[in-house]
């Protein structure tokens, strides 16, 4: 397989798919700070998007708007055909379609690994415990951590916790997965196990939006790289184009910084 051909092949395979996420003219303010400026984003089923950019550029804010963890000032958000409005019901409906993995794992410390995974299945989807546990075991097995099912989060390493967090999100069988710097809080030796899990998901065709600085990951699985700075998407291209031939000055400077450390 020729690496240079991969992005275009990847792109072709999803370009006709249905649109899963459609953000239009998103504006977000933190007090007087304009965090997102007229951002548009369309994500098709099966597409894998890597969001990168300097800190404070709005990339985390952008993906947190998709499941309404951040409230937007104006613009429209449609996920899997459902539009988010102010009503709690519409927000919860969209959240059921969207899985999210956080930088700091955010596992529930008082619940065992298995119960972390079954909680939303039981409470949100109303699935009885035995069936919920069956689903949870399936996804824990998929992230290779089934043997830790009866432990509490604090008894696991960071990498293991993050894999549980991925399994917990997968249990809800979301149409799209959002990753908000999933490896930034990890010790270096644990980054690989989490990235491998994410690559596995990508190979299974999961639609993914990843905020990450792992450029190897971006190159390997991304269909598109979006480069953000100051609340705007400055560059939107294939990973190979982005790394080979960044257009914007900010992107060149950013890549220089990142690659100097790798």
């Amino acid at each position: 397989m020729k690496a240079a051909n991969m992005p275009s092949e990847k792109q072709l395979s999803v370009s006709d798919n249905e649109v899963l996420i459609e953000l239009k003219n998103i504006n977000k303010w933190y007090g007087g700070f304009h965090a997102l400026k007229d951002v548009d984003l369309t994500v098709r089923k099966g597409e894998r998007i890597v969001l990168c950019g300097p800190s404070g550029s709005g990339k985390s804010t952008l993906i947190r708007c998709i499941n309404h963890l951040e409230e937007i000032k104006d613009g429209s958000i449609r996920v899997a055909g459902k539009e988010i409005d102010k009503a709690a019901k519409s927000i919860e409906a969209v959240r059921r379609e969207v899985g999210m993995v956080f930088q700091s794992f955010n596992l529930f410390p008082h619940l065992k690994v298995i119960d972390n995974c079954t909680l939303a299945l039981r409470r949100v989807k109303g699935i009885e415990r035995p069936e919920a546990e069956e689903i949870a075991r399936k996804y824990l097995d998929r992230v290779h951590i089934l043997e830790q099912a009866d432990k509490h989060p604090a008894q696991l390493s960071g990498g293991q916790q993050q894999r549980v967090a991925i399994a917990r999100a997968l249990c809800m069988e979301p149409k799209v997965m959002l990753f908000d710097e999933p490896t930034s809080a990890l010790d270096p030796e644990m980054v690989k196990e989490v990235l491998d899990t994410m690559i596995g998901l990508a190979e299974d065709g999961m639609t993914m939006i990843c905020v990450t600085h792992e450029m190897g990951f971006a190159r390997q699985v991304g269909h598109r790289v979006l480069f953000m700075a100051d609340g705007e998407i400055l560059e939107e291209t294939t990973p190979s184009e982005f790394f080979k031939n960044p257009q914007h000055e900010r992107a060149k400077a950013f890549l220089g910084e990142i690659l100097a450390h790798h």
Binding site: L69, R95, F102, F108, A120, V124, M172
Partner: peptide, 12 residues
Amino acid sequence: GQVEAGAALGMS
């Protein structure tokens, strides 16, 4: 983050 994790799972 605990509240957000629950919210992201669709919990009320």
